[in-house]
């Protein structure tokens, strides 16, 4: 297996706060990798750097051998990286299918086309993506009236519209009902298998993480403290300490 994403020594600080320190990891092709950690661990900062929304202070991000650091978000997307957000970002004044069509038009480099009819462009592709995420029956509803779980699924369809090889999902199930969570992650797992893409996701719900990820990384105070299979992470004393508290976290800090 080859690595699709190679992150080396990634660091970011805001003023005196080291949000992400020296994080390095590889993501293999076809892997569903979870990035977990308590609030403020630096997960979202990490994500924002991967997708070009935040410039890192140092480090390198290789996607398929190409350096992503310094590129704007839209270039990274054109290379084949899709993203969903912690708080869904969709176009509320458009219908569900128009949301997907807009992304498809951009993927086919037609965003500046003044003359063709957008309504009938890439209808089949859009419909296919919507049925993949189970939203086909809601294609013509305005996105503004969708339930939150449906918005998350719509966002997934949008993120898949550039046929990405890597999908970044920031808390994909936040704000969803438990049954919806399992459904969405099962869907993500299916997409990984069917399309051969890789997913990096952050998540707070440990049931979701342990049930669906192939591998787990744990971030705490900006540093990667563990990485391994579900069983390894479950048994890791440092991870237990971070999540359950062992007192030694604070002792460590006092010593350093």
């Amino acid at each position: 297996m080859t690595a699709i994403l190679e992150v080396k020594n990634l660091s970011k600080s805001f003023g005196g706060i080291k949000a992400v320190q020296d994080v390095s990891f590889d993501l293999m092709e076809g892997e569903l990798l979870a990035l977990i950690g308590p609030n403020g661990a630096g997960k979202s900062t990490c994500f924002n750097m991967l997708m070009g929304q935040l410039p890192p202070n140092s480090g390198s991000i290789l996607f398929d051998g190409k350096e992503l650091v310094g590129l704007p978000t839209r270039k990274i997307w054109q290379y084949g990286v899709g993203r969903t957000f912690q708080i869904t970002a969709t176009y509320p004044t458009m219908t569900v299918i128009e949301n997907v069509q807009t992304a498809l038009l951009s993927f086919h480099q037609r965003s500046f086309n003044f003359f063709s009819r957008a309504k009938t462009s890439y209808l089949d592709e859009a419909a296919e993506l919507l049925s993949l995420v189970g939203m086909a029956d809601q294609a013509d509803r305005p996105a503004a009236v969708l339930a939150y779980g449906d918005l998350k699924r719509l966002e997934l369809a949008i993120a898949l519209s550039n046929a990405p090889r890597l999908l970044l999902m920031d808390e994909p199930t936040a704000g969803m009902a438990p049954s919806e969570r399992i459904e969405l992650m099962a869907l993500a797992g299916r997409i990984v298998e069917e399309r051969g893409l890789s997913i990096l996701f952050t998540e707070h719900d440990m049931d979701v993480v342990f049930a669906h990820s192939h591998r787990i990384m744990v971030l705490n105070r900006g540093e990667l403290i563990a990485s391994g299979s579900v069983e390894e992470i479950r048994a890791n004393p440092r991870v237990q300490e971070v999540y359950l508290g062992g007192g030694s976290v604070f002792a460590d800090e006092g010593a350093s």
Partner: peptide, 14 residues
């Protein structure tokens, strides 16, 4: 309209 509705989403889709 996409750029008006959500700059975040529009930029993340190229």
């Amino acid at each position: 309209r996409a750029s008006r509705d959500s700059i975040l989403r529009a930029e993340a889709t190229g």
